[in-house]
Nucleic acid binder design. Structure first.
Lengths: 350, 350
DNA sequence: CTGTTAGCGCCTTCAC
DNA sequence: GTGAAGGCGCTAACAG
């Protein structure tokens, strides 16, 4: 039924060892041997059993990817870049969804890391606290995506959230806005991203000498969807003194906000301008098109995979925290002139 | 270093067999034995090596998912449902991207199916022709997603594309439209979906006694993105007698069309109404919200996985072609009254 | 109900 | 340069 390495050896009249040598491009194999073996491989249509190889070698060439939910556009795009980069490195990706629940994150991390099926894990954590992540002693390498566990023992790849939010907000200020609102996730110890972005927003305001009106900070639940952005925008519009601009925690929320603004007949960007973070594809086709901070997702994917593979290969340096460059893409939502793109304010520093 | 089954056996003072029995819930194990073994497992923090188990058992509990590109919203949502359903069945999903290229589809199908890493493959084929798919003699089960290879020897799960497009178009007719355009992929032997949807569109027109003006059928490239829909819409608007409604091959194209309509100051749905297929999340927040045919994606995922696992377990029936129910979700793009949802015209027949 | 034994298919240290 | 043997960790006959 299934043709094994030893069948090839028998067919070629050589030892299994020689077949293995040919397959793995090992050592110096005599041309005659190589030809004989190759012929047998072709005739028998032989393909190595990767499972057996992995068992023997102790690693698999597969990395685990743990995401809250793959259909969320940002994660879908991230997964795409990761799969693409992995493929270039000869790796494959095993995906699982955590829904962002602490329990599931822990469970899948545990199951994956012990299964021996993956060499390492890329984790976009939402439910696990920094402390827990720090305490984690995974038996295989783990690289954190996006969220940052302060002082973690784990490698991490992401953008500088404070700086990104600051740049986005500053852009609103530069276009003459003064009552700048923010829509961010409600505070949660395990989800520092939103807190950092709020901090950046506040930093920009204070640097410009604008005061931060707490009435202009709307909170949405964790892992907000478009609808949450719409609801939050509704609340902001009902303030006695509504904003003339909004910084949104992410694109999904901003898209909901745009829908609500349209619904209420508020003109964007004339009455209110909108900016956010992630730069998902959808931003280019919202009405109006949406200005957003664009992390270099290819770079992110590559760095994460490099970090992971280097750990898999035994690298033993202290945990790294890699900051990915980003830039602000200005579009119609922050500018009367539509589709002005790519004002680059790249940031690759710590 | 790594604790093995035999270590547990030694610790518990029993045979490996008994440990295996306990782990796999095999046979009748005496309570005393079970307790002893469990204690040893806990003390040693033992976790089975799934790689070794898979090698031994001949199957892995992993299914391969081959998609053109996972960041495309429809595929992202599909992947989400698949991963979710797989998880419920105790399966994990290995994802790879084909970019829709024939060569890559063939290659990945080959590599995956021979690697012994996955028990079966879910394939959303774009580049492979029906003939090629039919000729395919994969060594592990393959279930086709979405596209239909007529007379294929492979199982298939998808919606009735003709009926879906007919229903969508009929909805436009029922709202009083008479000059109904279509945006579809340009014909390609390997991509029947668009051809079928065009057919359904034409069927609806002819059933209503409307003539099908070839000037009103715009073609876009294969795997169109939002921009392609915008461009095509632009062409339709430049016709001497522009349409008063558009049936779009999929949501992405429709979203591009909406952007172009907005850009040209054409009112939706007053001047032109728009309907499409896929019902991706984004539809609920476009401006205006987009009416779309919603395939039951959960059902699709479940059926695909059921079909696959049943094949993996050796089922030997003739190839199945499962039609998934769908319904038309009417939203603002086809109705002056916004957000009227869920007019169900479910279709589960052959 | 439990213990012993033999591979699943591969790679790799040893000898030659 | 090539051949022979052992084992990665597990499960499933086959006894007992």
């Amino acid at each position: 039924m299934t043709v094994r390495l030893r069948d090839v050896a028998a067919r070629a009249g050589v030892s299994p060892r020689s077949v293995s040598n040919v397959i793995n491009g090992f050592h110096y194999v005599s041309p005659g041997m190589r030809a004989k073996v190759q012929a047998a491989i072709d005739e028998l249509d032989y393909q190595p059993n990767l499972l057996a190889r992995s068992l023997r070698k102790g690693h698999t060439g597969t990395v685990g990817l743990l995401l809250p939910q793959i259909s969320v556009p940002y994660f879908a795009e991230l997964a795409h870049h990761l799969v693409e980069q992995a493929s270039e490195l000869g790796l494959t990706v095993l995906v699982d969804e955590t829904t962002g629940e602490r329990k599931r994150e822990l469970h899948l991390l545990e199951v994956m890391s012990r299964s021996r099926y993956v060499d390492g894990i890329l984790l976009s954590a939402l439910g696990l606290s920094s402390a827990e992540l720090t305490q984690l002693q995974p038996r295989i390498p783990v690289v954190l995506l996006g969220e940052r566990a302060t002082g973690s023992t784990l490698d991490h790849v992401g953008i500088n959230n404070i700086a990104a939010a600051r740049d986005a907000t500053q852009h609103l200020i530069e276009t003459g806005r003064t009552r700048i609102a923010a829509i961010v996730e409600r505070p949660h110890p395990c989800a520092p991203t939103s807190r950092l972005r709020l901090k950046g927003y506040q930093a920009a305001l204070s640097a410009a000498g604008l005061d931060a009106d707490p009435q202009l900070v709307a909170r949405v639940r964790l892992q907000p969807r478009r609808q949450d952005g719409a609801t939050a925008m509704g609340r902001l519009l009902s303030r006695p003194r509504p904003p003339d601009a909004v910084f949104c925690f992410n694109d999904l929320v901003a898209i909901g906000a745009l829908a609500e603004l349209h619904h209420q007949g508020v003109q964007v960007p004339e009455d209110i301008s909108v900016v956010s973070v992630d730069d998902i594809e959808e931003c280019r086709f919202t009405i109006p098109t949406l200005s957003s901070i664009a992390p270099d997702k290819t770079h992110l994917a590559r760095s994460a995979l490099q970090l992971l593979t280097s750990r898999v290969e035994g690298a033993d340096h202290p945990p790294r925290d890699i900051r990915i460059p980003y830039h602000l893409v200005t579009r119609a939502s922050t500018d009367a002139r539509p589709d002005v793109t790519a004002v680059v304010t790249s940031n690759a520093g710590a």
